[in-house]
Amino acid sequence: MSSYDIHYRKQIWQAAICSVLNKVFDLAPPVLIGTAVDVVVKKQDSVIARLGITDIFGQFLILAFFTVIVWVLESVLWIY
């Protein structure tokens, strides 16, 4: 192990974790869009409806909530 690794180990781990999480959040919007299409097409038989939220408006509220969370987390990780 080099002296560089020892002095910056914590920052290296933080950067690696932020990079992986940022990529996960980059891939989340297409999944959310696909889920929204699923709600429109299948309505009460969608993936979210199987979790117990059968109201279409409620399903879209859940999707909107997760979309905002993903964008906020992606933006926060971009700062690091």
Rank of each mutant, 00 (worst) to 15 (best):
A49N: 00
L77K: 02
K23S: 07
T35F: 14
L73D: 01
I53M: 14
V39Y: 00
S3T: 07
S75H: 15
L63I: 03
I17W: 04
L73E: 03
M1H: 12
Q11S: 07
V37T: 02
W71A: 12
I56D: 08
L32N: 05
D45N: 06
G52S: 05
L32T: 00
A49I: 04
V31I: 14
D5E: 11
Q44T: 10
Q59N: 08
I33W: 04
Y80N: 07
D45E: 11
V20C: 10
Q44G: 00
F65T: 10
P30A: 00
K42F: 14
I62V: 10
I12S: 09
Q59A: 01
G34P: 01
V31Y: 05
Y8C: 08
A28R: 02
G58K: 09
A16S: 13
K10P: 08
V24L: 10
F60K: 07
I48V: 13
W71E: 09
K43D: 01
I62H: 12
V68P: 03
F66E: 00
S19L: 12
T35E: 10
A64C: 11
T54G: 09
P29F: 03
I12M: 11
V70K: 01
W13I: 14
L32Y: 00
F57S: 11
V20M: 15
W78I: 01
F60I: 00
A36W: 02
Q44P: 03
S2T: 12
L61Y: 09
V24I: 15
A49E: 03
V47I: 14
E74T: 04
K43S: 13
P29K: 00
F65R: 02
F25M: 15
V70C: 14
D45L: 08
R9F: 13
N22I: 07
V37P: 05
Q44N: 13
R9I: 02
K10M: 11
I56W: 06
I53N: 10
V37E: 06
V72L: 14
A16D: 06
S75M: 04
P29R: 00
F65V: 09
V24K: 02
D5V: 00
V72G: 07
V31L: 15
K42H: 13
D26H: 05
W71K: 07
P29A: 03
Q44F: 02
R9A: 09
V24Q: 10
I12A: 09
D26R: 06
W78S: 12
K10E: 11
K43H: 11
Q44V: 05
R50V: 04
K10G: 05
K10C: 09
P30W: 01
F60M: 03
A16M: 15
S3C: 03
V68Q: 08
I69Q: 05
K10L: 09
Q44C: 02
D45T: 01
V76G: 01
L27A: 12
I48W: 06
G52F: 15
P30V: 04
Q14D: 07
I12T: 06
A15P: 02
L63S: 06
F57W: 11
A49L: 07
I53K: 14
S46Y: 04
F25D: 04
L32G: 04
V41F: 07
W71F: 14
K43A: 11
L73N: 02
S2G: 15
S3R: 03
